[in-house]
């Protein structure tokens, strides 16, 4: 087949793509933050002595992990209005992605909390700290340092998931790429550049996160 490459048409629209990239990153960051708060509560429920709390955490994680994100997005955006809850596009998307992220965060935090040797907690008890003080001063900071690498990886993974926001016409990278594709018909160029942008963004994020991690690491 013969194909006449023309990257210039797409590069003329590069700002549209870069804006989309930034929007995707912000959506991912917001969802990660909310997901972390949710995940922390659920992780505490998951390791609590109360069987009902444990059951709730377990159910939440299984349900969310085994349901496609796209279905969650549609439930949030098209389904919730049936209950007279009307969220904007971005709000619906962040709602769905946060719930989704929360399930993964629950697992990450639970593992991070369980990885702390009990002896260290006993040492806290031995100097007279209350359970709440032990949680706040010992468990939480150690857990965060334990899970920092996974948090970074999940941020990248959520960033990739933001491409699904295109399905409800949020103008992030994938949506804008599709738009340029329809406008210009430069199929190969558009998708090559879009894929490249995603790859570069992911590896750049990974690189920056490694550096942050190294600064926080417990040697």
């Amino acid at each position: 087949m013969r194909y006449f490459w023309n990257f210039n048409i797409v590069f003329a629209q590069i700002n549209l793509l870069l804006d989309g990239l930034l929007l995707g990153f912000l959506l991912a960051l917001a969802s990660l933050m909310i997901g972390m708060a949710l995940g922390l509560f659920m992780a505490l429920a998951a390791i609590s002595k109360h069987p009902l709390l444990r059951g709730i955490a377990r159910f939440y994680v299984t349900l969310l992990r085994n349901t496609p994100l796209l279905v969650l997005i549609f439930i949030a955006y098209f389904g919730l209005p049936d209950l007279h809850i009307r969220l904007g596009k971005s709000e619906s998307f962040i709602f769905a992605l946060s719930l989704y992220a929360g399930a993964y965060m629950t697992e990450v935090f639970r593992a991070g909390l369980e990885a702390i040797p009990t002896g260290i907690l006993e040492a806290g008890q031995a100097i007279g700290l209350t359970p709440l003080q032990i949680f706040w001063n010992i468990q939480l900071p150690i857990m965060f340092k334990n899970v920092l690498p996974s948090l970074g990886n999940y941020l990248i993974s959520l960033f990739k998931d933001t491409s699904l926001a295109a399905s409800i016409t949020i103008p992030e990278l994938t949506y804008n790429a599709k738009k340029i594709n329809t406008l210009t018909f430069r199929v190969f160029e558009v998708w090559l550049i879009t894929a490249a942008l995603y790859v570069i963004a992911c590896y750049l994020m990974a690189f920056i996160l490694r550096r942050i991690e190294r600064r926080f690491a417990i040697q």
């Binding site: 260290i120 806290g124 008890q125 031995a126 100097i127 007279g128 700290l129 010992i138 150690i142 417990i218």
Partner: peptide, 29 residues
């Protein structure tokens, strides 16, 4: 927790708080 203050415990495995300096470990309580 208050009664534990009457006793001090030194563990076989030290059980220092890994995220704090020596000073932090001693001053936390």
């Amino acid at each position: 927790a208050r009664q534990r203050l009457l006793t001090g415990m030194v563990f076989q495995q030290f059980n220092l708080f890994p995220h704090m300096t020596a000073l932090g470990n001693v001053s936390l309580g």
